Simulated assay, not measured.
Amino acid sequence: MSLKDILVHVDSSRHCGTRLEAAAALAARHGARLTGLFVRTTPHVPQFVMSQLGPEVAQAQRRFANEAAAKARAAFDEAVTATGVSAEFRTPEGEMLETLVLHARYSDLVVIGQYDRRDDNMADEREAADHVILDSGRPVVVIPHAGHFPVIGDTVLVAWNASREATRAVNDALPLLRAAKTVHVLVINPRHNGVHGHGEIPGADIAGHLARHGVNAIAEHVVAHEVDAGNMLLSRASDAGADLIVMGAYGRSRLRELVLGGATWHILNHMTVPVMMGH
C-alpha cells in the first residue's frame, strides 16, 4: 500500500499555514496528490430575523465566505507551489464536520489541525479531530497548533498496546514507517496475558511483524503505573526526537475518555509533535 491521495483541511485559523506546509511536504515525500478542503459554512439565521433585516444579511454572509475561501485558496496554492505536488482545491458548502468526514473517505490520509480554543476561527472545529478519526474510516494526522513541522516521518514513535485500534493504526501507517529512518515501538505498562497481552517480550511480536514489511523497529517497554500513558508517550517522543507519533485512538468510548481522561484525549489536547491516529 502507498499513499496516493492526501486530504488537508484548510481553514482561516492562524495555524493553517503550518498545517499546509506539513501536508504538502508529506505529499511530496510520498508522491501523493494533495487535496485542500475549505468548507463554506453559513450560520443559520431564523427566517423571522431574515424578514426583519432583509437580504443584506445573506449577501454579507456570502461575501464573507467568498473572501475567506479566496484567502484559503491563496495559502494552499503557496504551499503547493513550494513543493510542486499535484493538487486540487475544493470549496463545498455544508455543515463543517459532515462535509469534512465525507471528503475524508475518498483519501488515503487526512491532515487536520489541533483545536485551539484561543482562535475564534476554529470555533466550529472543537470536535473535528474526533469526528474524522471515528467516522471517516481513514487515518488522520493531527498537526499541533504550536510549532513548525517541515519534516514528518523521519523518526517515528509507535504507541503499541496490542489493541484493535493500535493494530489498525500501525497497518495504516506502513507507508510512513517504511519511509522512516528510525522507528521506535513503545509499550507502556504491558500485560502478558489476555486479548491485549504482549507475550514474554512486550513489543517483540509487532516489531517482528514490521520487520517482515521492511520496517526495522526498535522495541522497548516501560512500567510506570504512577505516570499516565499520555504523559509517558509525549516524554518518550521527546527523548527519541520523534517527529511523528502513531497510535490507536479511543480504545474505550469517547464519552468515557472525556469524563475520566485517557491517552487519546490527553494527546489531542497536549500534543507536541504531529500524531497519526487510527480507529
Rank of each mutant, 00 (worst) to 15 (best):
M1H: 11
S2Q: 10
S2H: 07
K4S: 10
V10F: 00
L20Y: 00
L26F: 13
L26M: 13
A28K: 15
A28Y: 03
A32L: 10
F38D: 03
T42N: 09
T42F: 14
L53A: 15
Q59T: 09
A60K: 15
A74I: 09
T83L: 00
G84D: 00
R90H: 08
E95D: 10
E98S: 14
T99W: 11
A104N: 04
R105F: 00
R105L: 01
D108V: 03
D120F: 02
A123W: 05
D124S: 12
E125T: 11
R126V: 10
I133P: 06
I133K: 12
D135W: 14
S136R: 08
R138K: 15
A146N: 12
A146L: 11
G147C: 07
G147P: 05
V151M: 06
V151T: 14
I152W: 07
I152L: 12
T155K: 15
A159T: 04
E165C: 09
A169Y: 02
L174V: 11
A179I: 00
K181L: 00
K181G: 10
K181S: 06
V185M: 02
N189K: 14
R191P: 00
G197N: 05
G199L: 06
I206R: 08
I206N: 03
I206L: 03
N216I: 11
E220N: 07
H221Y: 12
H225T: 05
V227Q: 13
M232N: 09
S235V: 09
R236E: 02
G241E: 08
G241I: 12
G241P: 13
M247E: 02
G251R: 13
R256V: 03
E257M: 07
G261Y: 12
W265H: 15
H266C: 03
T272A: 06
